[in-house]
Design a protein around this nucleic acid. Sequence first.
DNA 1: GAGACGTGGAA
DNA 2: TTTCCAAGTCT
Length: 359
Amino acid sequence: MQPITNKLLAWYDDHHRILPWRITPRDHKSGIVANPYRIWLSEIMLQQTTVEAVKPYFLSFIRKWPAVTDLAAASQDDVMRVWAGLGYYSRARNLKKCADIVAADFGGQFPADLARLKSLPGIGDYTAAAIASIAFGLPVAVVDGNVERVITRLYALSTPLPVAKPEIRQLMQVLTPGERPGDFAQAMMDLGATICTPKRPACVICPINGHCEALKTTDPEFFPVKAPKKAKPIRLGAAFIAISADGEVYLRGRAQTGLLGGMTEVPTTEWTSRIDGETGIDAAPFTAQWVPSGTITHIFTHFELRLTIYEARNVRKPAGGNGWWISVENLDNEALPTVMKKAIAAAIPDAFAKRRKEA
DNA sequence: GAGACGTGGAA
DNA sequence: TTTCCAAGTCT
């Protein structure tokens, strides 16, 4: 075994993080096996998402759907509602698709090989390798953002990402042991998350600082090298909060694909880059006494959205329309993404009581 | 290969 | 306030 691998595994035994979806090395050694469903679920949730954000959602899902067959039996809308707030909603749509396939085509068991895992919706290179190594003990290279950072520093790779990816994968494969490959992958990720951090890494306490080329020759913080980012454009629009005399809000469903696909919204105009000050009030869902009630700003990954909020109170519910009315008290049960909650809260400040998601 | 795709927390 | 970014995937 590589000296680096050995040191990292020893470090992991003593310093691993305790996480709801994780089997500790001690339990692992006493014969307890990881649950592929839980590993899969956590890996999907952790894509581009912090551990702290994932924890309550993971526990909610496990409590509501203890096995992949339970998730397959759930409705798509239920899944979107429980996922609401976690972001990147295509993950939730693919999560449901994947559960359906595993239940229907794989007898409720996740396949234990890289190729078939990767063929499933929402499972790419990283997630397939993570499930294969952590849940099934296969010695495959697991490369996520943490591993990219650790490896580029360890070997002082100055090739920018994502060009350096194949080289990183190869170097990771060499380090990955035949025994405990899952623990090794998690050790690398824990190291990246707690010691080999993007800013001000704690090299003094790093278990492999004696092997780090970047630390030896320059500054680890210079790695990984990445292409510069582009400026975010600003898009404008208006949102309409209709409140009936009996205290209900008008909502409607978004298309199943694209931004916030499959989620719930309040009616809005198109979101455009126009700066002519047009309000777009023509796009109101129905005639009412629409009154401006401020603006909200929401930052998406690739643009900034500024919405003018119009509210109308004591609205007489019009017949027809493809939306629905829901009481303010029950808004928490809707699949509302954060931007829509902000829009509603602009008109109804106490619509969403500030409470932590139950753990 | 580059852009679409959310959110909240930290510096 | 601004910038960065956190266990990526899909097209």
